[in-house]
Lab assay of single mutants.
Amino acid sequence: AVSDRLIGRKGVVMEAISPQNSGLVKVDGETWRATSGTVLDVGEEVSVKAIEGVKLVVEKLE
């Protein structure tokens, strides 16, 4: 699937994400809805860990 190529890629949070609410991330110039187990603020760099349906699962870049 086209989304599989995104796993491991870096992105930037465009709309804040929390465990309760999905947000938006931009990866390779495309905007995706994303979820995370932690709070991520706009502008934070993330990496794509998995894909669930049409949402990316991301975590903060260390």
Rank of each mutant, 00 (worst) to 15 (best):
V2R: 03
E44L: 11
E59G: 08
I7Y: 04
P19R: 05
V12L: 13
L56S: 01
L24W: 15
A16V: 09
A50I: 03
K49D: 03
V46R: 00
V39I: 09
T38Q: 12
N21K: 11
K49Y: 14
V48R: 00
E30F: 10
S18N: 12
V48L: 02
E45T: 14
L24A: 09
K10M: 13
L40R: 02
A34Y: 03
A50G: 13
G23D: 00
V25T: 03
N21F: 13
S47D: 04
E30A: 07
V42G: 04
K60F: 04
S18M: 08
T31L: 14
S3D: 14
G43Y: 07
N21P: 02
K55N: 12
D4H: 15
V27P: 00
I17S: 02
V12P: 02
L61Y: 13
V25R: 00
V58G: 01
A50N: 07
T38L: 14
E62N: 15
V57I: 10
L24R: 08
L56T: 02
E62M: 11
V58E: 00
V2I: 15
W32A: 02
V57H: 08
S47V: 14
V39E: 07
L61G: 06
R33P: 15
V12W: 15
E52A: 09
L24E: 05
L56V: 07
G29E: 06
K55C: 08
N21A: 13
G43V: 02
P19H: 05
D28G: 06
L24N: 04
L61T: 11
Q20H: 11
R9H: 07
L61C: 05
G11I: 01
V54I: 10
K55M: 12
D41W: 14
V42L: 10
V12N: 06
E44M: 10
M14C: 05
A16D: 06
V54S: 12
D28M: 09
S36P: 02
G37Q: 13
V46W: 00
V2G: 08
V46K: 00
S47G: 08
E62I: 14
L6H: 03
N21D: 07
V46N: 00
V39C: 06
D4E: 13
V42C: 05
V25G: 00
R9L: 15
V12T: 09
K26V: 09
E15T: 12
R33Y: 13
G8R: 04
V27Q: 01
R33M: 06
S36G: 05
V25P: 00
V46G: 02
G53C: 04
G53L: 04
A1E: 15
T31I: 14
G37H: 15
V39L: 13
K60M: 04
E44I: 13
R33H: 07
E45K: 10
E30L: 10
S22F: 15
I51C: 05
S36K: 01
K26G: 07
V2H: 07
V39F: 14
V13C: 04
V54C: 07
I17L: 05
E52Y: 14
R5K: 12
A50W: 08
K60D: 03
V13K: 00
G53F: 04
L61Q: 09
K55E: 11
A50Q: 11
S36R: 01
S3Q: 11
V39K: 15
N21T: 14
G23W: 04
I51K: 04
M14Y: 13
A16Q: 14
S36M: 01
V13T: 05
D41T: 14
M14Q: 11
G43M: 09
A16T: 12
S22C: 07
E44V: 12
D28L: 08
E44H: 08
I17H: 02
R9Q: 11
L24S: 12
R33S: 10
L61N: 08
V27H: 01
K49I: 10
N21R: 14
E15P: 00
R33D: 05
S47P: 01
V13H: 00
N21Y: 12
V13D: 00
K60G: 06
V42W: 05
K49C: 07
W32S: 02
A1S: 11
A50E: 06
S22E: 13
T35V: 13
Q20F: 15
V54H: 08
R33V: 08
K26R: 12
V2N: 10
A34D: 00
A34K: 00
G29N: 08
A16S: 09
K10E: 06
V54F: 14
K10R: 13
D28Y: 07
E45P: 10
D28H: 07
W32T: 02
G8I: 02
K26C: 09
G53E: 05
K26T: 11
P19M: 07
V57K: 06
P19N: 05
V12C: 06
L61W: 10
I7G: 02
E44R: 06
G29R: 06
I17A: 02
N21L: 14
S22L: 14
V39Y: 14
V27D: 00
A1C: 09
T35W: 15
I51L: 09
S47T: 13
G8N: 06
E30P: 03
G29Q: 10
L56E: 01
G11C: 04
T35Y: 12
I17R: 01
E30T: 05
L24T: 10
T38A: 13
I7D: 02
L24Y: 12
D41I: 11
I7K: 05
A34T: 02
G8Q: 03
